[in-house]
């Protein structure tokens, strides 16, 4: 068990064999992190704003088509290509959580990080956020609303990590396995997402990360992601 003062090694496991492509994680992420609504026209133009994107790839030949779903949040790379290129330290590696942090207040919007991200998980605020009724009623007070001209991306719901750590410290105990649940993990009906501290050898993620099904996305680029995908064979989704 990890102690409250010890550094955590937050890891996300995404089991592609379980993912049904239902997009519940995307919706939960939007609500949790105040990710703004951009409208149909902007989406059609290619300016959709999702911190977590379910990429859908088609396999096979008609009529034997298969849809394969890959939920792609920020991979929280240890050797993140986005970090060195930022001229104003708006994105950097936090020493406490060892996560890739985006500081909105520092960002001046050069968008170099977004170009350099091989996963293209960074999104840009092309305009000021304008959530139509009733979406404007659901803003999360724990998370900043970003203005136009700054980059944003998945934070592993760092505010939830902080809250769990503070609760644990207040009660004088280590953070329990499964206590921290980012919005996507909490919302996933088939439990394709698992989140936890890999430094704790008893945690679910530590065991699952050793799975023979495990792999990392674009491993050859050398970014050392903190998201581990699990996959065996092909996903067979009937009727799509």
């Amino acid at each position: 068990m990890s102690s409250p003062t010890e550094n955590h090694h937050w890891t996300m496991i995404i089991d592609l064999d379980r993912c049904t492509g239902c997009q519940a994680c995307v919706v939960a992420c939007h609500v949790e992190n105040n990710v703004t609504y951009v409208g149909e026209e902007e989406v059609a133009m290619g300016r959709f704003m999702h911190w977590l994107l379910i990429q859908r790839y088609w396999g096979g030949e008609y009529p034997n088509m298969q849809a394969r779903f890959s939920p792609i949040p920020c991979q929280q790379c240890k050797e993140a290509p986005c970090e060195p290129v930022c001229p104003v330290y708006a994105t950097y590696h936090s020493e406490q959580e060892m996560l890739n942090i985006q500081v909105y207040n520092r960002c001046i919007g050069v968008r170099f990080c977004a170009n350099n991200c091989p996963y293209k998980v960074r999104v840009f605020n092309w305009f000021n956020p304008q959530n139509p009724e009733p979406l404007d009623q659901m803003l999360n007070p724990d998370v900043t609303v970003r203005s136009r001209g700054v980059i944003e991306k998945c934070t592993f719901c760092i505010h939830r990590i902080r809250r769990a750590e503070e609760d644990a410290r207040y009660e004088g105990r280590p953070v329990r396995d499964g206590e921290v649940q980012p919005a996507c993990v909490q919302a996933c009906p088939p439990e394709a997402f698992v989140f936890g501290d890999r430094n704790d050898p008893e945690s679910r993620v530590a065991k699952m990360a050793e799975s023979r099904r495990g792999f990392r996305l674009l491993d050859d680029v050398g970014t050392v992601p903190e998201v581990v995908y699990l996959k065996r064979g092909v996903t067979d989704v009937e009727g799509i």
Binding site: V123, R148, G149
Partner: peptide, 10 residues
């Protein structure tokens, strides 16, 4: 905002 320019993801 930058949105009035044609740049977009990616």
């Amino acid at each position: 905002g930058m949105g009035v320019a044609g740049i977009r993801r990616p």
